[in-house]
């Protein structure tokens, strides 16, 4: 690896000060599972790395006035072990479980997975299907935005060089919303998604679909919502046929590519099947544990 300086941040405020001091030739180190790989292969390394891995204030998981707040530095392993998350959002636990392998999940963080911004990220779809918002801190203070607007393209986000992703918030109205995440990779471990899908929905009167969300990963430059499929399902009686149709509609909203992992045609088939199954899973969760919509 090329030489760089490492400065440790005590907390998020300190990290922002350090970013302002060292920008633009600076990068934030959280879990390192993406960053170190990048630094090893790149000839352009920043002069300074700000190590935030000990910033305790970014590691909390808590219910706040806004909803469920998950600190950017929470690791995938911590998401899997969190009783709050396990109770409210088993889909987030499932999504975390599909990332890398044990070693990756022990180091890798939720914020890092989002900031790296690869289209196949496994953290994105479930959070977007839950209308998650993010909090960014920087020299101008805090700002919030929908997670769906955070991504600009492969490995591109709206985050400026002197800003830090601080937390992800699942809004209060979606706490406990029935959700299902599914990933199709070529192996169970250490595999990127060919396609990943998350679906969430509320069920009224035992069978009417309300506020459905479908988010697809690895099939476009960023994680995308299948808006037409959502509109098709809104207010509709949930049937196996309706869920299958929503899967077919989702295919038209994605722009999958052909690469060495799979062809675009194969990915399109996967979108239809996985979307249908994710909806079925979310619906089954809704029936198993009715929550007031």
């Amino acid at each position: 690896m090329r030489a760089f300086e490492v400065v440790a941040a005590r907390d998020s405020r300190h990290a922002v000060a350090l970013l302002a001091e060292h920008a633009p030739s600076v990068k934030v180190l959280a879990g390192g599972t993406d960053l170190l790989v990048e630094l090893k292969s790149s000839s352009h390394v920043p002069a300074v790395i700000i190590d935030i891995s000990r910033a305790r204030d970014l590691k909390t998981i808590a219910i706040t006035d806004e909803g469920l707040s998950i600190g950017a530095l929470v690791t995938h392993a911590e998401i899997m072990r969190s009783p709050i998350i396990g109770e409210m959002f088993p889909a987030l636990v499932d999504a975390a479980h599909t990332i890398g392998a044990v070693q990756t999940r022990n180091l890798g963080t939720l914020g890092g997975n989002l900031v790296t911004g690869v289209p196949s990220m496994d953290s994105g779809p479930t959070l977007i299907a839950l209308d998650a918002r993010i909090t960014i801190v920087g020299p101008a203070g805090r700002r919030q935005m929908p997670l769906a607007e955070f991504f600009l393209g492969p490995r591109k986000t709206v985050l400026k060089p002197d800003e830090l992703l601080a937390e992800v918030v699942i809004p209060k109205e979606n706490l406990g919303k029935p959700t299902q995440f599914l990933k199709f990779g070529l192996r169970r471990g250490q595999a990127l998604a060919l396609v990943n899908v998350a679906a969430s929905l509320w069920v009224e009167r035992g069978q009417v679909c309300v506020r459905p969300r479908i988010a697809l990963g690895a099939v476009a430059p960023t994680v995308i919502r299948a808006l037409k499929a959502e509109a098709y399902l809104e207010g509709r009686t949930i049937t196996p046929e309706a869920m299958a149709e929503a899967g077919r509609i989702s295919v038209g909203e994605a722009k999958p590519i052909t690469d060495f992992r799979a062809s675009a045609e194969y990915r399109r088939d996967l979108i239809a099947v996985l979307t249908k199954r994710a909806l079925e899973g979310a619906y089954a969760r809704a029936l198993a544990k009715p929550v007031e919509a």
Binding site: V6, G32, T33, L36, Q103, T104, L107
Partner: peptide, 8 residues
């Protein structure tokens, strides 16, 4: 368990 190659 961590990958020591990915930790500074």
């Amino acid at each position: 368990a961590v990958n020591a190659c990915l930790m500074l």
